[in-house]
């Protein structure tokens, strides 16, 4: 039998608060810590053949897949199955992973049901943690005492992603709905269903929406339906991005651009009008995570591959990391 790591799939990535490390979590419950400093500014004399391999590789005790990662100044928050863990960054950056600093349990109704924490989002004031979960709900926790503040329920299937801007929250789900919420009232006030819009729907890929993001005026979302730019107030499709993809899993705004990828051979940087600015080839069959960091600029693209692509200029692939 082959080693399962050959078929590795990375679902999420995060940078350490100091910006020197990149952590990536895969479906086998493994957490890889890459030393970006060593990889981006290699000292030729000290270069070994495994320089592009993880500096540390931690295994979660449960072995459950790591679905989402988000970082605060102190903690790395890991969303797996039925649990959200908070690990001190110091523990993550040591050779052996100790016990988590805290954990939040998401109780399921039946023992057979597994609730994936598909998406984690931290409110801009860094006080609230939002978790989009496999039980169709978005949970809001107070990060200080980790108590559940409220539940956003409105999806008919599991939640793919959670994102927000100011007090506005957006979530997308397998049911094909994109819901807009008010963080203060915890109520859904708007809803779009891209699969019902014949400009963007792709019935052969399904109705699911893999990713949705907010800016001040715009929504970008895509999944089974095409990636499209929606106007926040009118909730109309403004731009339909014509990409040769088989499903969108990543989409967000960055510097007046939309960055998007998924089951495609490239990661795209797109203008609001629909032009493709940059087409970045990727190693992964499907991209599940593309995380950005500024100063210095690093874009890490990971997905269903043991390889993680690193770009510093957004124009070409600089390095390939091996998560194996």
């Amino acid at each position: 039998m082959l080693d399962k790591i050959l078929y590795n799939t990375v679902l999420c990535q995060a940078y350490s608060p100091c910006g020197k490390y990149l952590v990536a979590g895969n479906i086998y419950g493994q957490l890889a810590v890459f030393d970006l400093d060593r990889i981006l500014n290699p000292v030729v004399e000290l270069l070994t053949s495994d320089y592009n391999k993880p500096k540390y590789k931690h295994n979660l005790e449960s072995g459950n897949q790591i679905c989402s990662l988000v970082t605060t100044d102190k903690f790395l928050i890991i969303g797996t199955v039925n649990e959200i863990y908070g690990w001190d960054w110091k523990a993550i950056l040591s050779v052996k992973l100790s016990k988590p600093s805290w954990q939040i349990k998401i109780s399921s109704k039946t023992s057979l049901e597994y609730i994936d924490v598909n998406s984690l989002w931290l409110s801009e004031d860094r006080e609230k943690l939002l978790a989009g979960c496999g039980d169709n709900n978005v949970y809001i926790y107070n990060l200080e005492d980790r108590r559940q503040i409220s539940v956003l329920s409105g999806h008919d299937d599991y939640v793919h992603s959670v994102h927000g801007k100011n007090d506005q929250i957006i979530s997308s789900g397998e049911d094909g709905a994109v819901l807009l919420w008010d963080l203060r009232t915890a109520k859904s006030h708007n809803k779009i269903e891209p699969y019902k819009n014949n400009k963007v729907s792709r019935p052969d890929l399904g109705k699911w929406v893999g990713s949705a993001s907010l800016s001040d005026d715009w929504i970008v979302c895509g999944g089974g339906p095409r990636l499209a730019l929606w106007h926040l107030r009118s909730l109309d499709v403004t731009t339909v991005f014509d990409l040769p993809d088989h499903g969108i899993h990543v989409s967000y705004f960055h510097d007046d651009c939309v960055i998007a990828s998924g089951a495609a051979k490239h990661l795209y940087q797109l203008s609001y009008s629909g032009e493709i600015r940059v087409e970045l080839p990727v190693s992964a069959t499907t991209v599940y995570s593309a995380v950005l960091k500024s100063n210095p600029n690093v874009l890490a693209i990971a997905g269903s591959s043991p390889e993680i692509d690193l770009c510093t200029s957004f124009n070409y692939r600089d390095q390939i990391l091996h998560f194996r």
């Binding site: 679902l11 679905c67 499907t286």
Partner: peptide, 9 residues
Amino acid sequence: FSPVRGRNR
């Protein structure tokens, strides 16, 4: 139970 699960469906 469910035909797909997780972000990787």
